[in-house]
Amino acid sequence: MPFAKKTALVYCENQFGLVDGKTASGLVRHSEAYTIVGVIDSTLAGRDAGEELGDHKNGIPIFANLDEALDQLQEVPNCYIYGKAPLDACVSRVERFLILEAMSKGMDIINGLHQFFSEDPEFARMADHHGIQIKDIRKPPQLKDLHIFSGQIARVNVPVIAVLGTDCACGKMTTAVELNQALKRLGIKSVMVATGQTGLMQGAKYGVSMDALVSQFVIGEIENAVVQTFDNEAPDIILVEGQSAVGHPAFMSSLGILKGSMPDGVILQHPPARKFRCDFPHLSMPTLESEIQLIESISQSQVLAITVSHENMSTTETQRVIAEYEDYFQVPTTDVLSDGCQKLIQALGQHFPQLNQKIKQEGLEKVLLLAMG
């Protein structure tokens, strides 16, 4: 029996399509767990969410508020998702009221903040009164269920690829999701390990929200997620979603990913037009070269390909930068949202012969099936 997705309305007031709205953007682009029926952002009301992200029209409307959404939707959605990821990680008084109102309508609450709604007495009473559930995505596992590094990662004998970046909210997760889907369409058994709240909300079976963990367990939890993926899924390749950046002074997440997953290769995402680190207007962006050197100096991993975010860039500018990067760094470079994942798949095939053989085999089988049809 096919898995029935729950319907969901995503709250992203004033932030849809912006850096702090990355959770909402990710869910609108891809979700295996929810059918997104609308987004709340009064500044963009009446528009199509897909078009607003620069993608194709996807029929997901943007509403001015919760009342408008419930008036226009045919049914009350199953879930109300808090789709913002602000640095302060706390809801405002107005947002509290909206969450309570959503509960009163019978909607489960999906929360990606560090502020755990299930431990809020008022939210807990309202949830109990209306018989709804609160799911705190960033709530870490209980101590007894946490893992420290064990060395079992050495058993993993399929390619593990980390999709890292030079900054926060620069498209790492989007690239990982797009590549995962593209590999699956080729008949490759690719599994993505999520490392943040958005990937987990999208329905990733394996992973953990790294920034919710005590540092003692970060590396072990990433290792365990990769090992569990390998043992349970028999994949052809494992993709590990990146967080932040190795060289970012405010976060340690990508370092934990490099240590815990011990990747066989890295795909590095970069926003060329970004001058300062997001949420830190006094911190200049690093050069792509410095981040590559840092990654390759502190790990045994090699950057196999570069992916760019076309944020604040025209198509012409993006293509010029891609050509410059390929010439200078001598690695395949692409913008997956505009040009797809062909270059990435070719790079993976060149570096991992067993994967290339599987891609060719699956391609040949498809050709034969078409010929027989």
Rank of each mutant, 00 (worst) to 15 (best):
L370C: 04
L368M: 07
G151C: 09
A8T: 11
L369C: 09
V156L: 04
G26N: 05
Y82C: 04
Q293K: 13
L294E: 05
I267W: 09
S254H: 10
R185Y: 10
V266P: 12
P271H: 15
S299V: 01
I132W: 05
H30P: 00
A250Y: 13
I257E: 13
V39C: 11
G151V: 03
S209G: 10
V163G: 04
S92E: 14
P249G: 05
D167V: 00
S338V: 02
I292T: 05
T195I: 03
G203L: 09
L239D: 11
H30L: 00
T43W: 01
R138W: 11
D67R: 06
T334F: 13
L18N: 14
V177M: 11
V266S: 12
F352W: 14
S261I: 02
A323P: 15
R277W: 01
A347H: 11
A212N: 09
Q361G: 00
I110D: 06
S92I: 00
S338W: 09
G207N: 02
S254P: 06
V76D: 12
Y82G: 01
D55K: 12
G151F: 02
G265N: 11
S301Q: 06
V163E: 00
G17T: 03
V158P: 14
G38K: 11
V246F: 14
S104L: 00
F3W: 10
H282G: 03
S297G: 06
N111R: 02
K135F: 15
M372I: 05
T35L: 05
F251E: 00
G256Q: 03
M201P: 03
L288E: 03
T35F: 02
C12Y: 06
L288S: 04
T333P: 13
P2R: 00
Q361W: 11
L368N: 08
S31A: 08
V331S: 14
N14P: 05
R155N: 15
E221Q: 10
L73V: 04
N58G: 14
E68I: 00
I295A: 07
H130C: 02
G203I: 05
V28Y: 07
V308M: 01
L146S: 09
Q342L: 12
D128Y: 07
F230T: 03
